[in-house]
Nucleic acid binder design. Structure first.
Lengths: 282, 282
DNA sequence: CGAAATGAGGAATATTATATTCCTTTGCGT
DNA sequence: ACGCAAAGGAATATAATATTCCTCATTTCG
């Protein structure tokens, strides 16, 4: 139990001097932490020895030990909303509140995304990627960044990846695919026109389509051979695509880590690519 | 931010005496809390004055203040993120285990990144960005994706942003900056040559440099006017830049959300840019 | 009712801890 | 090799803490 709570509870039963000291600490623990026993005595109008005796009565070896206890209580109280807060962030929120809600939203979409994809579906996707001749990644806007991030990881594993910012080039890439190839199509809404175009073309050519979309029915989902899902929480962290991007990253990170166990020699590839990059860093 | 993490991060860069003292504290913070400066000196085989100087080098008024910081760090460490496992992912882990560890690592680096940046520093960064004529974002590799993500968000807020994949163009952009401009330089190691080059140039031109790096001392940090920090956890989710990227995103998301409250008319800008994008989705 | 007992609480003091100064050493650049 | 700068310990000054001792008010019991 927090020492501050204890002080409050015992306030009644205390002697005069002790009560004054306790009250001061309850009112402004932060300030008390900056004071020496003598300074605290001066601030409360009692004597320095009373402060020390006060600390000892509470069961601490001395004032220092007591101060550590208050410090600890204060530290824990700071993050008292134990667990993660999750709610809409609005303009009146305090700094700490905003951070907690942001982390809460991110955590929630990561957890739900992890839960929304069965091990079987993930396995199917991994199998397709590992067996593919080439993997084409498709994403626009924020999803294009996730696609790129994933492409770096796949390259580290020695896979052949197609990805381009220019959607025209992407479309012509797609039309050159065969049934030995895989398309990973990222679109949280499942309605991005460019991505749909690419998926349609690739499907006509016989390639396997892995869709990464939200849960709601959507055109991209309808085209997919293997469908993975991202769960976002858009209306909480308002006005931005933060959580859907986090969900996509969660999913692609999962795929990457699980691929590490499947791709023969994965660790060697990674070693090499890291050495290559290190050369550029001093 | 946890002082214990800071100690760990800076251990390498410390002098002999300091390193010994730091190591002792890292190994057994509880014990350290029971010791006086002289006792800690005896326990580590250094002098009492070294202990005090050590505390002061870290930015505390003295040993007592430092002790309070360690006490606080220890108290907060106790927070068990209920249900979240955090550990090294290895090949023998089960599917569910891997997911839990992945989420745990991500959550940890988000939390620690949130904690590592004081409200004051964040405020300083926000002020610089809001007041800037132009904002140049710099990042290579995985950081370039974060930079791009952040640039989309800043554009939504109607800010003028410079960002290009080609480092030559970035460098010429940097040399055209003035002291009315701001550079946000992203590099977890703080040692990417291109980014250093850009930051140096921009600094010569008088622009304000905001660095986003890890905690360990690094060249980019030394150049920065305002320094923000990312905490990653590389050795847990092995062989990838997953958590450092997450930490960077956490930080840029924080900045974005806090900017929403600062930039006049932010919500209008966002409304408009979302309407514009919706047109492309069906 | 009054004297002894008790305990709160402050003043003074002893003890201990902390911060500063000063000096030696060592390593590094010229 | 020389001088300089930084590290770090010894000594010292300063400050904080703990203890002792004393006074005074209240309570208890003869």
């Amino acid at each position: 139990m927090s020492i501050l709570k204890i002080l409050g509870a015992q306030l009644e039963a205390m002697t005069q001097a002790d009560r004054q000291i306790a009250q001061f600490i309850i009112d402004d623990p932060e300030r008390m932490l900056a004071l020496s026993s003598a300074a605290l005595a001066a601030a409360t109008g009692r004597s320095q020895s009373s402060v020390v005796k006060f600390s000892q009565k509470l069961g601490y070896a001395g004032y220092q030990q007591f101060k550590l206890a208050v410090n600890k209580a204060k530290a824990l109280e700071w993050q008292a909303p134990a667990g993660v807060i999750h709610g809409t962030i609005d303009a009146s929120d305090s700094y700490v509140n905003i951070l907690q809600k942001l982390i809460g939203s991110k955590l929630l979409s990561m957890r739900e995304t992890a839960a929304a994809n069965s091990e079987d579906m993930i396995d199917a996707a991994l199998g397709a990627i590992v067996g593919a001749r080439k993997t084409l990644l498709a994403g626009v806007g924020a999803s294009s960044l996730v696609a790129k991030d994933f492409s770096y990881k796949l390259l580290k594993l020695g896979r052949t990846v197609l990805l381009d910012n220019d959607s025209h080039i992407q479309i012509s890439n797609a039309s050159a695919l065969t049934k030995a190839d895989v398309v990973v199509a990222l679109s949280h809404s499942g309605r991005s026109l460019e991505i749909l175009r690419i998926a349609e073309l690739a499907k006509k050519r016989g390639a396997t389509i892995i869709s990464i979309t939200g849960l709601q029915p959507n055109p991209l989902l309808a085209l997919a051979d293997i469908s993975l899902h991202t769960i976002a929480d858009e209306d909480r962290v308002r006005s931005s695509a933060i959580t859907s991007r986090d969900a996509q990253l969660m999913l692609t990170d999962m795929l990457f880590i699980l691929l590490l166990r499947r791709v023969p020699g994965a660790h060697d590839f990674i070693q090499h690519s890291e050495t290559a990059v290190t050369v550029l860093k001093m």
